[in-house]
Design a protein around this nucleic acid. Sequence first.
DNA 1: ATAATTATTGAACATCGCTCAATATGACGC
DNA 2: GCGTCATATTGAGCGATGTTCAATAATTAT
Lengths: 201, 201
Amino acid sequence: MARRSDHTRAELEKLIVDEAHRQMEDVGFQAFSAREVAKRIGYSIGTLYNVFGSLNRLLLAVNARTIGLWVAEIEAALERAENDRIGALVESYFAFAGRHRNIWSAVYDHRSPAGEELPDWYRAALESLTGVMVREVAAALPESRQMEAPALAGSLLALVHGHCVFALDGTFRLLGVEAPLELAVTRVREILGDGQSRGES
Amino acid sequence: MARRSDHTRAELEKLIVDEAHRQMEDVGFQAFSAREVAKRIGYSIGTLYNVFGSLNRLLLAVNARTIGLWVAEIEAALERAENDRIGALVESYFAFAGRHRNIWSAVYDHRSPAGEELPDWYRAALESLTGVMVREVAAALPESRQMEAPALAGSLLALVHGHCVFALDGTFRLLGVEAPLELAVTRVREILGDGQSRGES
DNA sequence: ATAATTATTGAACATCGCTCAATATGACGC
DNA sequence: GCGTCATATTGAGCGATGTTCAATAATTAT
């Protein structure tokens, strides 16, 4: 099969995460299988465990990659945005989740085993996401309310996340609500204070 | 083993859901096992499938029961509440999730297989939950804003859900936010309009 | 060339959801 | 009481899963 000269350790790690991420995108969290990933890249299941130690860490690697792509897309949308940065933020958050349901859901569907603490590189990925929120919220707030920024950012993250979850799982449909994104944006505007918002391009 | 004279069909169904619900509360969604449930009540795995048809429907029955308990607890809190009904609503929502993490999480962790539509009795359970939200939001809104009630109720549900998820999974801790419940209540008050709120008992 | 080190394997184990021919049980007519 | 039929219950069997680890292959060091 595969020879160890074919790939350095780092290359092999990337090869596995690549395929695992593709697999997650295709079949979703429930149907994800480490064996299938191994088969597709031509290595045995054992090698997969040698490299990542556990399925948990492989899934964290997959999710960290997802978060990275997600943050990149949000940042790109923010660069394109002219005035309405908060609107662009919420919109691109939603857009990514809608366009990549499987990998997006996996971030929240997977739970690390109890007692296991998150690796630093995964924490860093999470913080890059929350970091964008805190930064943009701070920028949208007047000087006098800067100290509220972190709490407000958390609140906004929770608000947008909730709307996103219920938009995708059908809860909003069940309620007869048909524009969850607009709803979320409206909520966010109310919360950041009506002073500098309400709708412009 | 168990004789058919021991239980009517309805009793057997209840026996299974009882044990499955207990099991879910004890070990959580990931470790839940239909085989284990069968073993504990002294029936075989086959009987379980005869009664419920699939694991999906058993899990829906477990989750429907959870939602029932949840709604009952919220309604009880609302009856005790004097003035601040919205505060009581959010607080009891949070309290249930915190006190029954496993069964609460299972409601959102479980996904029905694609294409399978939800049984009416499960829809009814979901609607009893959303119904409380719509009713209370409507009661908290002035006459002039009654038409917004359903959309606002959905928004509030999403907002509270998001805060609840991030409170339990550690995201708020990661952000340095230490009072997610109060944060959620504040957000809800802002959204319903400051006219009749801001903090009184 | 030989020894020591490291990478890779994949059969083996326990467990899972799920199926279905076989069996046990109960009810009914005579 | 007996035989017949319908129904309830079983649990071995199937194809998967995650995980382990002695055995093997490949590389490096001596």
